[in-house]
Amino acid sequence: MYQSSNQRDFARELRTKATEQERLLWSQLRKRQLLDCRFRRQFAIGPYVVDFECFERLLIVELDGGQHNTLESRDYDAKRTTYLEQRGYRVLRFWNSDIADDFDAVLEAIAKALVERAPGRPHPGPPPEGEGELGGYPIE
């Protein structure tokens, strides 16, 4: 999708002002560290800038702070999610506290979504004998 210069500038500004939780998650998503999938951070899609985007799997990861817990913010986030889902994306949302409280569970949820959205993924079922992990993350 086309990005206006204003969107690119806004995304660049967000990257320089990343929260501690965003920096921690980015340290695990960058450079294809998670299941060899490429993520971009603070990336503009249409009128919105998303926290993390994996285009090859059409997956978006959003980290939400307390400001997202108002009725107005929840409505705005729902509108964003609908817009992104209409374009084929799956949107995963985590609270910043999820990063602090159980970072491994967040990474496992992202890995599971990446596996589910893999091209040519076989029918879901138990893994063949001797297999049960992909990239260090259990497949459930």
Rank of each mutant, 00 (worst) to 15 (best):
M1C: 10
M1Q: 12
Y2K: 13
Y2F: 11
Q3F: 00
Q3Y: 05
S4N: 08
S4V: 03
S5M: 03
N6P: 00
Q7I: 00
R8K: 15
R8Q: 15
R8A: 11
D9N: 14
D9L: 13
F10N: 12
A11I: 01
E13N: 14
E13C: 05
L14W: 02
K17S: 12
A18N: 05
Q21E: 15
E22C: 05
R23T: 06
L24A: 06
L25W: 04
S27Q: 11
S27A: 13
L29N: 02
R30L: 06
R32M: 09
R32N: 14
Q33D: 07
C37V: 13
R38F: 12
R38W: 07
R38G: 03
R38H: 15
R40I: 01
R41M: 09
Q42I: 03
Q42L: 01
F43M: 09
F43W: 15
A44G: 05
A44S: 11
A44L: 02
I45Y: 03
G46L: 06
Y48D: 00
V50R: 01
F52T: 02
E53H: 10
E53G: 00
E53S: 09
E56L: 07
E56S: 15
R57G: 04
R57D: 05
L58V: 00
L58I: 00
I60S: 07
L63T: 03
L63W: 02
D64H: 09
D64P: 00
D64R: 08
G65Q: 03
Q67F: 09
N69G: 01
N69I: 04
T70A: 07
T70K: 07
L71S: 12
L71V: 13
E72A: 15
E72Y: 10
Y76I: 08
Y76M: 10
D77H: 02
K79P: 00
K79Q: 14
R80N: 06
R80D: 05
T81W: 07
T82D: 15
Y83P: 02
Y83V: 09
L84Q: 01
L84Y: 04
E85V: 11
R87C: 07
R87N: 14
Y89Q: 04
R90F: 00
R93K: 08
R93P: 01
W95E: 13
N96T: 06
S97T: 15
D98M: 05
I99K: 03
A100M: 07
A100W: 10
F103P: 01
F103E: 03
D104E: 14
D104G: 08
D104V: 12
A105S: 14
A105R: 06
L107M: 10
L107W: 05
E108L: 14
E108G: 09
A109N: 11
A109D: 13
K112V: 01
A113S: 15
A113E: 12
L114A: 05
V115L: 12
V115N: 11
V115Y: 13
V115F: 10
E116I: 00
P119V: 10
P119T: 09
P119R: 15
P119A: 13
P119F: 10
G120V: 03
G120N: 13
R121C: 02
R121L: 11
R121W: 03
P122G: 09
P127S: 12
P127D: 08
P128V: 08
P128W: 08
E129V: 12
E129G: 10
E131L: 15
E131Q: 13
E133I: 10
E133Y: 14
L134Q: 07
L134A: 07
G135S: 04
P138V: 07
P138E: 10
P138F: 07
I139F: 09
I139K: 05
